[in-house]
Simulated scan of single mutants.
Amino acid sequence: MAEKSILALFPSQEQAQRIVPKLQALRVADVSVDHLHNINGTGVSESMNPLVGRFPGLSFLTLGKEGQGIDEGILTAASVDASGMSAPMSEVFTGAYEGTDRMDTLMTVVVDERCYDQALRVINDGGGKL
């Protein structure tokens, strides 16, 4: 049995959980729903010119995050929380820019390839964004 995986974003865990029974009826091998946490920082409290000053990275300039390793710093800088350049707003927010309806719930599904198209339809009908 060959399997395929699906990653989909939802505005809330509740909305994603509503379609889990439908996916389980398709006999998915695995399904999980996880909340993607925002990257919290202290905020920027000082003015500096990044062209002449030394600073640890983009997440320091935008979020005030300090003390990160190189890997964490790269991932933090790639987040929409640190840089709006990492994804168009229409792909991150479904409506209000304030972030109240942010797509921050990830559904991961492993399904038999014979049921793959049906699973995609269930996710789309349930409000998921592939």
Score class of each variant (00 low, 15 high):
85 M>V: 00
81 D>Q: 06
103 M>P: 01
108 T>A: 01
7 L>Q: 14
55 F>D: 10
108 T>E: 05
91 E>A: 06
105 T>I: 12
59 S>G: 02
90 S>P: 00
77 A>G: 07
96 A>K: 01
123 I>G: 05
7 L>F: 15
111 V>G: 01
53 G>M: 06
60 F>N: 12
119 A>M: 04
129 K>F: 06
11 P>F: 03
49 N>H: 07
75 L>P: 02
72 E>Y: 03
29 A>R: 13
129 K>S: 11
2 A>T: 12
23 L>V: 01
5 S>L: 12
97 Y>T: 06
130 L>D: 14
34 D>A: 15
130 L>I: 15
110 V>W: 08
21 P>G: 12
49 N>W: 01
1 M>N: 09
123 I>L: 03
34 D>I: 09
80 V>Q: 01
122 V>E: 14
70 I>V: 15
125 D>G: 04
87 A>G: 00
64 G>W: 09
119 A>D: 00
129 K>G: 13
42 T>I: 03
56 P>S: 14
5 S>H: 13
120 L>A: 02
37 H>P: 10
65 K>R: 14
125 D>R: 10
40 N>Q: 15
13 Q>H: 13
97 Y>H: 05
84 G>T: 07
93 F>Q: 10
122 V>P: 06
30 D>I: 00
14 E>M: 13
66 E>D: 09
68 Q>D: 14
77 A>E: 08
25 A>I: 04
32 S>H: 12
52 V>C: 04
78 A>T: 03
83 S>H: 02
71 D>E: 11
99 G>H: 05
69 G>Y: 05
45 S>M: 08
35 H>K: 14
21 P>W: 13
51 L>M: 01
103 M>H: 08
110 V>Q: 12
74 I>Y: 11
70 I>T: 08
88 P>A: 04
99 G>V: 00
31 V>I: 11
110 V>P: 07
71 D>G: 05
125 D>K: 09
116 Y>V: 04
47 S>P: 00
56 P>A: 12
27 R>G: 03
129 K>Y: 06
97 Y>D: 06
98 E>G: 01
91 E>T: 05
49 N>R: 08
70 I>N: 05
73 G>H: 09
19 I>L: 15
56 P>G: 09
23 L>K: 00
56 P>E: 13
56 P>R: 03
40 N>G: 12
122 V>T: 13
119 A>L: 07
107 M>I: 02
76 T>D: 13
11 P>V: 10
18 R>V: 14
77 A>W: 06
57 G>Y: 02
5 S>E: 12
8 A>T: 12
116 Y>F: 12
8 A>E: 15
128 G>I: 10
76 T>G: 05
5 S>Y: 14
20 V>L: 07
62 T>G: 06
118 Q>V: 03
37 H>A: 15
71 D>C: 08
56 P>T: 12
120 L>V: 11
26 L>R: 00
47 S>W: 10
29 A>F: 09
107 M>T: 04
63 L>A: 08
107 M>R: 07
27 R>F: 07
16 A>E: 11
6 I>Y: 14
50 P>T: 06
91 E>V: 06
36 L>M: 10
76 T>Y: 08
6 I>V: 13
68 Q>M: 14
124 N>M: 13
15 Q>I: 15
77 A>H: 05
8 A>K: 09
97 Y>K: 10
125 D>P: 02
19 I>F: 04
66 E>I: 13
49 N>A: 09
107 M>W: 00
73 G>I: 07
76 T>C: 08
49 N>K: 10
93 F>D: 00
